[in-house]
């Protein structure tokens, strides 16, 4: 009448091997998953280690773009390159010369410091920024002086949110913030809260011929 012990003996004889076999299977699967996982992690870290990085140091820099008309659209030069990175260059003593379209007057911007951004061709100029537009047949020479500007060379746009002084012949305008589209040759000034534009327009009457 010993019913109970024979059931246990039956389970040990027939089910235990299957259980052990199952556990072995799970252990092997887990180990291989862990192995595959750790290999792929090491693979990606090695990829990052090898990504392309550029670090260069040079004495001067010149970057120019020739337009579809075969003429130089802009020329950026700097006397000193502090650092040339993957997609930008930090420079000193920078000059940007732009000729937006055929026949339109050349515009030159100079500054103490500059950061050239290769991706979107924007140059940040800081420190005694001076923009000069040479005299044209229809207009006297023009200058804009401020402390910092962004020059978007693709869109012919120089802009700042800082105080500026603008001279055109004998006319003088002072204010805060401007956007100078030197391609279309129009200059938007002002618009910052609590600031005013002040223009002194001289009546420069030329003697009758």
């Amino acid at each position: 009448m010993n019913q109970q012990p024979s059931k246990l003996r039956y389970w040990l004889r027939f089910h235990l091997p299957n259980l052990i076999y199952l556990l072995l299977l799970v252990a092997v699967a887990g180990a291989s998953y862990w192995l595959v996982q750790s290999n792929s992690d090491t693979a990606t870290t090695s990829d990052n280690k090898n990504s392309e990085l550029i670090n260069a140091f040079a004495s001067g820099l010149e970057v120019s773009r020739t337009g579809k008309n075969g003429k130089i659209a802009y020329l950026v030069t700097a006397k000193e390159v502090l650092h040339y990175g993957t997609d930008n260059a930090t420079v000193k003593n920078i000059t940007v010369v732009a000729t937006p379209k055929d026949g339109s007057p050349v515009v030159t911007a100079t500054a103490n410091d500059g950061v050239w951004n290769d991706k979107d061709h924007i140059v940040q100029l800081t420190g005694q920024v001076n923009i000069q537009r040479e005299a044209a047949a229809d207009s006297a020479a023009m200058s804009l002086v401020t402390e910092a500007i962004n020059v978007d060379l693709y869109n012919d746009l120089a802009s700042t949110d800082l105080p500026f002084e603008y001279k055109n012949g004998t006319n003088i305008v002072t204010g805060t913030s401007f956007a100078y589209d030197y391609g279309l040759r129009n200059l938007k000034m002002g618009g910052q809260p609590n600031t005013r534009i002040k223009a002194i327009l001289t009546n420069e009457v030329k003697p009758a011929k």
Partner: peptide
């Protein structure tokens, strides 16, 4: 005498 103009905004069209 010169014109002295004060305003919030200004747009100068060079051409």
């Amino acid at each position: 005498l010169p014109f002295v103009v004060e305003a919030d905004n200004a747009v100068y069209t060079d051409i």
